[in-house]
Amino acid sequence: MAPVDFDVVLEKSNELETRFLQNPKNDLQELQKIVQEQEHALRFPSVSYSDCYTLGEIIRRLYSQARYTAPIVIDITINGHQVFHLAFDGSSPDNDAFIKRKYATVNRFHMSSFRMGLMMSDSKTTISTKYNVPEGDYGAFGGGFPLTLTSGVQIGVICVSGLRQVQDHCIIVRAVAQLLQNGPAASK
């Protein structure tokens, strides 16, 4: 796998967020391409529970620095085992329900829930119609991201719920890029 230019990943994340917030129905195929590139670039050589804790803390710090006003919930799962979960004051069980739906989408389709949502919008359909899955169990909207090894094997899911869907997605991307740039503990 070629070395990742994390500055480019972050630049594209900012572009994705800006473009989507300006017009969420514009350039859906180009936005899908950006998200797919993020998914491919942001892979781990290995992942420990300690890495997941660090990743959760990076998301917490990025959230606090951005001074968002909506509360969030952060959830990281490896092989079906929840290894990090943080709920901010003001969040609710609704956030956890959204996380379950995002998790189910990423886990089943092996792509970010945001890319799935972009694909469904582009196809003018819904995940429940296209894949015959219960709408209440799957979420085709931003905030679920695959935790994937460089081998291509997905071993977990990272979720954020509470912000606008593109913001949920981008805060995960920024945190993963930052962790990988600094080197996860498992790879040291």
Rank of each mutant, 00 (worst) to 15 (best):
Cys170Tyr: 01
Ile34Met: 03
Pro3Leu: 15
Arg115His: 08
Arg60Leu: 12
Lys102Leu: 03
Ser50Lys: 14
Leu28Ser: 00
Met120Glu: 02
Phe109Lys: 09
Met120Ala: 04
Ser64Val: 13
Pro184Gly: 05
Val4Ser: 09
Ala185Gly: 03
Ala87Ser: 13
Ala175Glu: 03
Leu55Arg: 07
Phe44Arg: 05
Gly142Ser: 02
Pro93Tyr: 13
Val176Met: 14
Arg43Gly: 01
Val160Ser: 07
Met116Glu: 05
Phe20Asn: 04
Ser13His: 10
Val4Arg: 08
Pro146Val: 10
Met1Glu: 12
His110Tyr: 11
Phe84Pro: 00
Tyr68Asn: 06
Leu21Gln: 12
Glu39Phe: 01
Arg164Asp: 04
Ser46Asp: 08
Arg108Asn: 08
Gln82Glu: 09
Ala41His: 12
Arg164His: 09
Gly152Ile: 08
Leu118Met: 06
Tyr53Phe: 13
Asp51Ser: 08
Leu21Asn: 10
Ile59Gln: 03
Val4Met: 11
Gln181Ile: 03
Lys102Arg: 08
Phe98Pro: 00
Leu179Ala: 03
Leu86His: 11
Gly143Lys: 05
Val160Phe: 07
Ile72Lys: 01
Asp137Ser: 15
Val8Gly: 06
Leu10Phe: 13
Pro24Val: 02
Asp7Ala: 15
Lys100Gly: 10
Gly90Gln: 08
Leu16Cys: 07
Gly162Cys: 02
Arg108Gly: 04
Gly156Ala: 10
Gly136Tyr: 06
His169Met: 04
Asp7Pro: 07
Cys170Asn: 09
Glu17Phe: 10
Ala41Asp: 12
Val133Trp: 03
Asn182Asp: 09
Ala177Tyr: 00
Gly139Lys: 03
Gln181Glu: 05
Asn23Met: 09
Gly162Pro: 00
Thr125Asp: 07
Gln82Trp: 02
Asn132Met: 15
Ala186Ile: 10
Thr148Tyr: 12
Asn26Tyr: 12
Ile172His: 07
Phe88Trp: 11
Arg108Glu: 06
Gly162Ala: 03
Ser187Leu: 06
Phe6Ile: 07
Leu31Glu: 00
Leu163Thr: 07
Gly152Tyr: 05
Ser121Phe: 01
Gly139His: 05
Ser112Gln: 06
Val35Tyr: 01
His110Phe: 11
Glu30Ala: 07
Arg19Tyr: 03
Glu11Val: 13
Leu179Lys: 04
Asn132Val: 15
Gly152Lys: 08
Val35Ser: 03
Asn23Asp: 11
Ser91Val: 13
Val157Ala: 06
Asn14Lys: 15
